[in-house]
Simulated assay, not measured.
Amino acid sequence: MADVAAMAGVSSQTVSRVANSRSNVDEATRERVLSAMRMLGYRPNTAARALATGRFRMLGVISFGLNAYGNARTLEAIVAAAQDADYSVNVVSVRAQTESAVRAAFERLTLQAVDGIILNEAQILDTPTLRLPSGLPVVVVDGEEGRRQPGVDTNQAEGARLATRHLLDLGHRSVWHLAGPQDSFAARRRAEAWHGTLKAAGAATPPVLYGDWSADSGYAAGRELAAKPEVTAVFAANDQMALGVVRALSEAGRKVPDEVSIVGFDDLAEASCFLPPLTTVHQDFEEVGRQCVSRLLDQIHTGEAGTGGVSSVAPRLVIRASTAGPPHAS
């Protein structure tokens, strides 16, 4: 630090302020100090900095099911937002949503010195007996109201309403739904909103089919749907399952969208390359990640525990070529 100060022509205190990203340094001085750091290969002593500031500039993430597209995209967005704020991220992947697994993940992150923790889609929080360890700020990625922890999520219900309403407005008398797993918060919210939208429109509510988010489960459900001539519109709870439905319908000789329209959810990067290009609900994972990190840093910087309540991120419907009016519509 003394060498950097001498090269930059400033005090050691100024070097410390720059190293700790303090705002009370003018930009010309900051750049001079940073240039000296680069030339000398200076790296702050993170242990010493943590002792001085009480912060490790490390966020922990507990994620459930990293193979799920939404969870992976949300994690990617959290990491990017944390990096923008000059924080690193330590991720613990938990395979089973059990109390012991969640407690073990918290303990592991606490031992690895994090300033706060984000839980990525944690239905386990609804377990009445679960008590999270105190002392660390927490933010949850999902939209369950009534929890003590603050949350951030896409407005799942609004996304499902947009999808269902779009198909009804095209003239379909009803909309079938391929839901995600019954233990998924997002899947439940989408299914409830689909059902409520049909009821509000006075439309028939067909029985729900369930998948596991995979294209294979969509294909299995699609074969069942293809055998029902009354099916003219399908809302699948994610794009992968929608892809499986499209394949099954095609193999059964039922054209999309001439005979059956289909809407997905997520807006995969590949959704526009499906055949036909998929109408779907776009989730802004980047904004979810930014808000998660922002709400967590607010707690870290103020030293105050976050209150409950969900920050809702609006989805939008992306209309492509997989939806049209019902066959023989006038």
Rank of each mutant, 00 (worst) to 15 (best):
S134R: 12
D84E: 11
A82F: 08
V138M: 11
V79M: 06
N90Q: 10
A113M: 13
S134I: 06
T127A: 13
A105R: 02
V89K: 02
R131S: 12
P137L: 13
Q83Y: 03
L125Y: 11
V91L: 13
V89P: 09
V114I: 05
A77C: 13
A82H: 03
Y87G: 03
E76C: 07
E121G: 08
D115N: 03
V79P: 00
P133Q: 14
A113G: 04
P128R: 09
A101C: 05
V102I: 14
D86R: 09
D86Y: 12
G135S: 05
R131P: 06
R131V: 15
Q112R: 12
L109D: 01
V140F: 02
V102F: 01
V139D: 02
D126E: 12
N120M: 09
D115G: 02
E107S: 13
S93E: 10
T129F: 04
L119Q: 07
L111T: 02
L136D: 00
R103W: 01
A80N: 12
D86L: 11
L132Q: 04
S100G: 01
L136N: 09
E121S: 13
Q83E: 14
T98Q: 15
S88K: 07
V79R: 03
E99I: 15
V140H: 08
P128A: 14
D84G: 05
N90F: 11
L130P: 04
A81E: 05
A85C: 12
V138G: 02
R103A: 01
A96Q: 10
A81M: 03
D115H: 07
F106P: 02
Q112V: 02
Q97P: 02
V91D: 00
A81Q: 04
D126F: 01
D126Y: 00
D86W: 04
L125Q: 01
F106E: 00
E121M: 08
A85R: 14
T129M: 12
D84H: 05
S134D: 14
A105D: 02
V79I: 12
E99G: 13
A80L: 11
A77V: 10
L136W: 05
V102W: 05
N90M: 15
Q97W: 06
V94Y: 13
V94I: 13
A101E: 10
S88P: 04
L136Q: 06
V94L: 15
N120C: 07
R108Y: 00
G135P: 07
P137V: 04
A85L: 09
A81V: 12
T110V: 03
V139I: 06
V94A: 09
I78G: 00
V140G: 00
I117F: 06
L125S: 00
I117D: 00
N120Y: 08
S100R: 15
V138D: 07
V141Y: 09
V139Y: 02
Q97L: 00
L136I: 07
A104M: 07
G116N: 02
V138N: 01
